[in-house]
Design a protein around this nucleic acid. Structure first.
Lengths: 178, 178
DNA sequence: TCATAATGAGACATGGATGTCTCTTAATGA
DNA sequence: TCATTAAGAGACATCCATGTCTCATTATGA
């Protein structure tokens, strides 16, 4: 049943979001489903993790697509990327740690691409600084994104506060403007 | 022997830095040591991980102590924190993922404390912005720190480039100054 | 109502990592 | 040189998560 499958994927995202090495039995329990049923839908652990990654990436890509990033100046697009990521990134975050293990790099890149494009455009349009390599910029941006998402998953902050903080730090930094 | 113990701890930091769930056999091999010898020095996996955490924290704390952070304005102190972290943080980074499992929170806090103090002072002296909660500021700062360290461990950048980028982004942000 | 498919519960096998133990060999130091 | 200590090698035992299988029960739809 489709409902069961979704329940398993949602439960997996929640459990793995907290404990990336959680056993399948815990995920089944969280989903309110028998362990055998989980195995019927996802014959191996890897297939479950791939399933979570797949929907996680799909949700993110859909969010980015709906955000019309290329119609905004880069700094506003970045603000929107952060908001979308914190809203749609839970499943992605649950698996990103092991992404290299069972994720097609091309799928990961589908998520990264819209973000990279905004950064590239920002540098080209002189909205973003050009004195850092773009790969490095992307790496630090995703670090901020992922930590901000974690703050909300752990309920250390509200999503609004995390979004606000991530935008502020990434765009303008922690130094007080004078 | 003390040499053997250090070799094991260094090897553990290297291996766990790349694969946090690596088996003890791999660590023994990386250390050029028999598995039994590893168990003589560290009777359980947990004791090894605690050992790595302990020296990792000690190295960091020593680095911070030697940096005379409180004699510098906050922004310069932050620059120095980043440099120290990228130079001395390898062992810390190897275990930070599982830190809650077998680390005394008080030990973690010994590392965090000098950093928090600099942030607090920065806000007080109006060097850093005051419109974000300090916990949030700290969380995003450590996210940048950890990612910058990871870039160097994975040899995606030189330590110098990573330091420069982390300083720039955290203090001034990615937006081009005008 | 009846047939089919999905689920739950649980027994069972398997594999890999952890941890224990013994025996032998190599260092080290008095 | 000799005694003591550390190390290497490798055989076990054990635990736990994964994955398989069966059987009874429940849902669903024609």
């Amino acid at each position: 049943m489709q409902r069961t499958r979704s329940a398993i994927l949602d439960a997996a995202a929640r459990v793995l979001g907290r404990r990336p090495d959680a056993a399948l039995a815990e995920i089944a329990e969280e989903a309110g489903v028998g362990r055998a049923t989980l195995y019927r839908h996802f014959p191996t652990r890897e297939s479950l993790l791939s399933g979570v990654a797949e929907v996680g990436i799909a949700e993110l890509v859909a969010g980015f697509a709906a955000a019309n990033l290329d119609e905004l100046p880069a700094d506003r697009a970045i603000t929107r990327i952060i908001a979308v990521f914190l809203r749609n990134g839970a499943k992605y975050a649950a698996v990103i740690r092991h992404a290299d293990q069972y994720c097609d790099p091309a799928d990961i890149e589908r998520t990264a691409k819209p973000v990279r494009e905004v950064l590239t455009r920002g540098v080209r349009d002189q909205v973003l600084r050009a004195d850092l390599r773009e790969d490095t910029l992307f790496a630090l941006f995703s670090a901020i994104l992922e930590r901000a998402l974690r703050l909300t998953i752990d309920e250390a902050t509200t999503p609004e506060e995390a979004t606000e903080a991530a935008v502020t730090i990434f765009l303008d930094g922690a130094r007080k403007p004078r």
